[in-house]
Computed example of a mutant assay.
Amino acid sequence: MNRSFKATVVAAAFCAVAGAGVVGYGGVAVGAQKSSGAEKASGAQESAGVREFSGGQKIRVGGYSVNVSCSGRAVGREPVVMLMAGGGDGLETMRPLQKSLSKKGRVCSYDRLGEGESDKPKGLQSIDDSGRILSGVLDRVVGKRPVVLAGHSMGGLIAARYAPDHRDRVKGLVLMDATIPALTAGINKAIPASATGMAADLRDQTIAVNEGQNPERFVIADAAVRSVGSIPVQIIKHESQYSEVPGYGPALERMWADGQRQWLALSHRSSTSTAAGSGHYVHVDRPDIAVKAIKRVTAQAARHH
């Protein structure tokens, strides 16, 4: 992974209109590889009304074509894991993680509207719009099985906002450096209007992206954290990301750390940790930590389901 400032601090957070990025969105695809033809829908069978397939497949959800990838087999009462990439990223960035996890369970991922090989949205999207697409995907590829949502960056925020209204199906959460609950307020506090240069650009780009200037046309609104009850929730934070922002690195790190702690309010069984040696792409820099956390939450969810 490129360790330069533009690739990790700016571009690794939000994919902006001109290809640069800002805080907390996702960024450029890291270590991604396109699916080969042999991987496309390599096998399928019917299971409880759900077409269980392996590889990639396009499905129709809410009038859109949505690109989905699934692998592995469901085991006993274990939930299916749904991986959710960050903003500006397609499911390809989750492929190595999916490959590792699917050795002992069922794992899927999908491109949200505007990302990867899915259709572009027709207009601005709210969290409810994104949730309807996620519900449609889960209906088609998971069915009535319980699910663990494991999201990076913006994918983590969407997972955390979705879960409280879908307690019947979401039985665990893993948030990998998830976008914080109140990013617009946080960035305005961390980088004041008097800032100039790189810091001011970072603030302005972040706010613009939050208003919908991103590939998904997704409006990222600040909101309080809502409880999802007592499901297992693992929150993983990066170790270092903002050290190269002149004058404002420490304030940005405090903002991000405070936001990660706010996600603890999701559940009575929430815990937080820092992935040593990682930047924003926790699952790329420390896949061992990401895999361990997802396996642990999935096992806990299976025991209590």
Rank of each mutant, 00 (worst) to 15 (best):
F53W: 13
G279Q: 11
V81N: 04
E211R: 15
P181F: 06
A11P: 01
I191N: 01
S42A: 12
F53T: 01
L97P: 03
Y162T: 07
G155F: 03
E239R: 09
P192Y: 13
G186F: 06
A302Y: 06
L157T: 01
Q234Y: 15
M198F: 06
S71H: 06
G62D: 01
A185K: 15
G88Q: 06
A48E: 15
A163P: 10
A293S: 12
L266Q: 07
P164G: 11
C108D: 00
S69W: 15
H280K: 02
S65I: 01
K295Q: 13
G186K: 01
H166N: 13
S118L: 07
D285K: 10
L83E: 08
G43C: 01
V170N: 00
S65P: 02
M94E: 00
S102N: 11
E244A: 02
R161V: 09
A299I: 01
S126H: 08
I236T: 05
G249S: 09
A221R: 11
G186P: 04
K120D: 02
D119C: 03
K6Q: 15
V209F: 05
S230V: 09
I235C: 03
K144T: 10
A190W: 11
A18F: 13
V10L: 13
D201E: 13
T298C: 08
S47C: 14
D201I: 13
V228S: 13
V50K: 08
G19V: 09
S100V: 10
D204K: 12
L91Y: 04
A41K: 12
K122F: 11
C15F: 09
F53C: 00
G123D: 14
Y162G: 03
I207W: 11
L202N: 05
L91K: 11
G31Q: 07
I207E: 00
V245N: 05
V225N: 05
R296Y: 15
L138D: 00
Y25F: 13
D128A: 14
N210L: 06
V282P: 02
S126L: 15
P287I: 08
D177K: 01
I294D: 08
G123F: 02
E52K: 12
Y248T: 08
K171D: 05
Q98H: 12
E211W: 13
V291T: 10
P192M: 14
L134T: 01
S35Q: 06
S267C: 06
D129V: 10
L149Q: 05
G156Y: 10
R226L: 14
L138M: 13
T298H: 03
V141D: 07
G114P: 03
L91H: 05
S126G: 12
R73V: 04
A11T: 11
G49Y: 06
M84I: 04
M1P: 11
V284M: 13
V23M: 07
A302R: 05
K189T: 05
G143P: 00
K295C: 10
F53K: 09
Y110G: 02
L101S: 00
F14T: 11
A265W: 13
A190P: 11
G212W: 09
I236K: 03
S54N: 07
K58M: 13
R73L: 12
V219L: 14
V282S: 07
T8N: 12
S100I: 04
I289Y: 01
E46W: 15
G155T: 04
K292A: 15
H305I: 09
A299K: 14
L175Y: 04
A293Y: 01
V137D: 00
V28H: 07
